[in-house]
Amino acid sequence: MIGSFLRSIAIIAASYSILKLIQYSLNKICKITKFDVRYENTLCSVLSSISYYIIFLTSTVLILREFQIVDITKFGTLVTGASIVGILAGVASQSILKDIFNGFFVLFEKQMQVGDFVIINETFRGTIEEIGVRSTSLRDWDLKRITIPNGSISSIRNFSKERMRVVVHVRVPYEEDPMKVLESLEEVCNIMNEQYKNYLFKLPSGKPKGPFNVYGVTDIEDSPVGAKYTITGIVYSYKYFNALRDTKLQILIVFRNNKVRIAYPTHINILHNDNEYRGDF
């Protein structure tokens, strides 16, 4: 009994060492390949996950054999062990298979990769750190690690697919001169095109596909405070959030310099005097 216990410890230690060796080898192999970096990281993450499950199942069978619960050399005990595994698998198979199949669809369709910034199920947002056979892990803005079963992923909004369109809206009081507002927004676009000239998404010819420009007046009905103006620009995805913040900042700066007001809700209070005026007749 003591011998079986010691051999089981040795199996666990060996399995752990083999797993670490595989992970180390995968990282080294991925570094010398010429694939895209995100694809390499994703591939390493998936292969590491598969290796973990294979080694875990193998070591479990070996440990069970040490305690004579399963003997792979004897058909009877093998059938018994398979029956036990079958019962356990029958209980959990539905969710496990859903996780695995959904995970493979996500991988093969390249819906997301390690390093992508995503919003999953319109609830969880962050940077993908690991994609496994059964689950996906991401790191949010607060640096909390979130793990989501692949089977529960119903929607993915990926902010890291080569290019993204920056769309910024601003509301201006109806009293402002529309032409002055448009000229100020054109000034903002010129600043952004110069500041982000190296990050504008470009066609194979080298010409920007969608530089910053004034889209125009996009709403004058749904708000009582002012008209809505919109500017857009297409940048490489890794610069999207920087461009979004800088565009909003430039709008504030240019509007302030040009004395253009930004609309905001106001309240008018009317005070009534209950004392009636009484004159002499």
Rank of each mutant, 00 (worst) to 15 (best):
S205P: 09
S48H: 05
D222S: 15
G233E: 03
G206S: 09
F281Q: 11
I148L: 08
E187Q: 05
T232F: 03
S155V: 07
T230H: 06
N121S: 02
Y240W: 06
W141N: 06
C30A: 14
I191L: 09
G90M: 05
Y24C: 07
R163Q: 11
S25A: 15
Y277D: 10
K34S: 11
Y174M: 09
I119D: 02
N150C: 09
E176S: 03
F104K: 07
T42V: 12
I11S: 02
N257L: 00
D246V: 05
A263F: 05
K202L: 01
F105M: 08
G279T: 12
Y199W: 06
R7E: 09
I231K: 00
F255T: 00
R125H: 09
L271M: 13
G210L: 05
L244F: 06
I234W: 06
T218H: 10
V61S: 01
V91F: 13
F75E: 08
V70C: 02
I262C: 01
E276D: 02
I63F: 02
E194V: 00
Q113D: 15
S15F: 01
I11T: 10
Y53V: 11
N158M: 11
L43D: 12
F105E: 10
R171W: 03
R125L: 00
V181Q: 01
L47K: 12
T232P: 01
N273V: 08
V188M: 02
L203W: 03
N257Q: 02
V170M: 07
E162R: 12
E40Q: 15
H169A: 08
G81P: 07
K209S: 04
S205R: 09
T247W: 01
V170C: 07
S205N: 15
I54S: 05
K207T: 15
